[in-house]
Design a protein around this nucleic acid. Sequence first.
DNA 1: GTTAGCATGTAAGGAGTTACATGATTTT
DNA 2: AAAATCATGTAACTCCTTACATGCTAAC
Lengths: 214, 214
Amino acid sequence: MLELAVLGLLQEAPLHGYELRQRLKATLGTFRAFSYGSLYPTLRRMQAAGWITHDDGDATVVADAPPLTGRRGKVVYKLTAEGKERLAELLSEAGPSAWEDETFGVHFAFFGQTDPEVRVRILEGRRSRLEERREGVRTSLARTRSRLDRYTLQLQEHGLESVDREVRWLTELIETERRSARARPADPVPPGQAGTRPPSDVPPPPTATGRGAP
Amino acid sequence: MLELAVLGLLQEAPLHGYELRQRLKATLGTFRAFSYGSLYPTLRRMQAAGWITHDDGDATVVADAPPLTGRRGKVVYKLTAEGKERLAELLSEAGPSAWEDETFGVHFAFFGQTDPEVRVRILEGRRSRLEERREGVRTSLARTRSRLDRYTLQLQEHGLESVDREVRWLTELIETERRSARARPADPVPPGQAGTRPPSDVPPPPTATGRGAP
DNA sequence: GTTAGCATGTAAGGAGTTACATGATTTT
DNA sequence: AAAATCATGTAACTCCTTACATGCTAAC
């Protein structure tokens, strides 16, 4: 997860760790937060894997003070070619790894860099997942409703309404995607090769925010 | 978390692992799911800690076939005295450990066994937490809105609406709690549902006069 | 008599967190 | 010159998941 988020952000611009975390917060909003304690080791790991590099970002490169606990001064990371490949690979995944609770938000946040067909498949995957879950809970609720206390019931119902809301949201998004696809028909997408679109080829469809009639 | 959930469920009735997991699903609904791979080790750990015991639930106790990979046959667990103490301790916690994202649902699910004052403090704690988060996101959104792409924006807004919704829900719950407290200074929950609450010994709020200031 | 669901468990490991530790730079 | 904020990093640990492995019991 963090890995995808980092790659996605670095695709947009080179950043150092601290800044990366701010952007992470701004990008993922209420969905997820990462601590430095996981960010920095991840950056190291990703560098070891060859997906990112840093070229001492500050102009003040003085090479004599021997670093006591590693380097000091900003370390600005950017993607390597392999990193871009890796990002493309992650963004082309249209399976559970993209639509489960913990992962969906991050994938969605980088939909701007995701192939339109993959977008739709992820949105639909998530919707089915939620509908499935909703069915399970509804069934179990129907069977046990009378035995549940006030609070458990409240929890179930609030949960169901949340799921309903997200399903409606997804449905609207899917429809918008389909309309865009029809408006912009040419989309080859050869198998095995999909992913990083050039940054700004997202045509602005009329953002139909407003009422949702289920 | 699993620990609290298990204690809470076993307080209501003795159960074996498999059944426990079904109940977990039914009780927590959309909020959380646990796998057997975490449930069984947790049961072991809790037994080692002295909070639960099992007395070989099946009538068929034949003691000669040496168990190859541990015991077979249902293992019905129930709370010990220490387990009840531990549960009471966990249910009396009214801090972040009770109102963060991962924990709140489980604590809420056992509000029926929780002291009314603690309930209100947890609800208020969660509400402040969410309001704080909402503020952070709103501020950051105001600053960066123009630079965000369509999808990131959608994500932020959906997130904000979800938070808003939960805040409203909490506010209603808090008001209901306060009304109950005023209506019956000792024992709350007037109508609501026909909950076959076993007369659980809810810790004493007899001289409860202090209205908690946040 | 075999499939499906009930039932219990282990081993390995993923993905993060908290708490700690340090230093540089900017603001007051 | 103190305080706040920026900036980087490590060590120990928590908590849960996946995949595997086994066996019992009811239904078809």
